[in-house]
């Protein structure tokens, strides 16, 4: 799972981030680089892949 290292938010592909225009079903890799964590505003590059 992709997790924000600034706040711990986990990006759920099946939910996407509709408020930011990321449709449900969007894989993390396909999110634009200028997307921000919806909880804390960290950059996409602040997310890391973490084993479940």
């Amino acid at each position: 799972m992709w997790m924000c290292m600034n706040c711990g938010h986990v990006y759920e592909p099946e939910e996407g981030d509709p408020v930011s225009g990321i449709a449900p079903g969007t894989p993390f890799e396909d999110i634009p680089d200028d997307w921000f964590c919806p909880l804390c505003g960290a950059k996409k590059s602040d997310f890391e892949f973490v084993e479940d």
Binding site: M3, M5, N6, C7, G8, V10, V50, E51, D52
Partner: peptide, 15 residues
């Protein structure tokens, strides 16, 4: 803030 925050948050991540 970012520098310290990341280190401290790492100890309290969901996993």
């Amino acid at each position: 803030h970012q520098r310290f925050r990341k280190v401290l948050q790492k100890a309290f991540l969901p996993n």
